[in-house]
Design a protein around this nucleic acid. Structure first.
Ligand code: FES
Ligand code: FES
Lengths: 145, 145
DNA sequence: TTATAAAAGGATATAAATATCTTTTTATAA
DNA sequence: TTATAAAAAGATATTTATATCCTTTTATAA
């Protein structure tokens, strides 16, 4: 499972993408409301994402968050990596100090399949692809209730 | 990813099973040493497992931990359920308040495959099967280095 | 040029997970 | 019956994740 912070980050980026497509640059308040996260905490997360150049920000009046040219194909992996590192893609599912094909734990063979499946999703799915499925109405960003 | 506590629990149970097969009932100290976990913390975890009847314990001289008759086919799911609940099998991977087939988040279709894959492992793998793969020499309980 | 709106930065606070320590209960061996 | 070994129970401590608050910097509009 991803950390709450990572989930907030992913949903925030998707929302920013959706608004950007409408020629808007949402601010912290709007993002926090939309992803149903505490505002001050959302601010910290957006700050982290901007610092790592996953998206861009503009200070001052009329400012907000947005994607620049070279930030269009951001993958889930990129976001996870910045927010919580990539232990989840490498760790032994049985809790050993490392995962090793040639000296496996008893879960290794089966666990690796699942772990790699998640890695594949993370490397393949992009913020803009997720956003697009919402724009098309095939998926939702939040629950009504 | 499972919590550290859950990992300790699984490894502890596997070790207890291995020792039981040698007609031994290990105590907290022996278990903690083997799974490389802090002793007092291991004690708490074993206490939780015993309280939930996942294995049995005997107090006093010559006491220790062991599996009773009806505790032989303990699944990983049982252990995870007791240690951290089963959110990981139900939660929305995108962080929505619930996961819903008919009102999916943009990750749903792909995420559910991975999540269900893990659920399948958890429901299928048993402590005794994992232990047996170690006894046979096909897998390890800990890393030399 | 000043007032205002916005993000950045820094300092704290709270909650949850991980870890330790001490006392109590229980069983057994001497 | 007493001393000892072991788990159970309870209290406390530490660390990490989550969350809040206050101040500073920056850009823009009036
Ligand atoms: S060694 Fe445990 S998952 Fe690879
Ligand atoms: S709705 Fe998100 S994983 Fe099912």
């Amino acid at each position: 499972m991803l950390s709450k912070s990572t989930e907030y980050a992913i949903r925030a980026l998707v929302f920013i993408q959706l608004r950007n497509w409408e020629q808007k640059r949402p601010g912290v308040g709007e993002v926090a409301r939309e992803i149903e996260a505490p505002e001050a905490y959302t601010a910290k997360i957006l700050q982290t994402l901007a610092k790592h150049k996953l998206m861009d920000s503009a200070k001052g009046r009329g400012g907000g968050f947005f994607f620049g040219e070279n930030q269009s194909s951001l993958t889930l992996y990129d976001v996870i990596h910045v927010m919580e590192g990539d232990a989840c893609f490498h760790k032994c599912g049985f809790g050993l100090k490392s995962c090793n094909d040639h000296n496996p734990c008893p879960l290794h063979d089966k666990y690796v399949v699942v772990r790699d499946g998640f890695f594949e999703i993370a490397k393949t799915e992009t913020i803009s692809a997720l956003s697009d499925s919402i724009r098309r109405g095939d998926a939702v960003l939040n629950r009504i209730v």
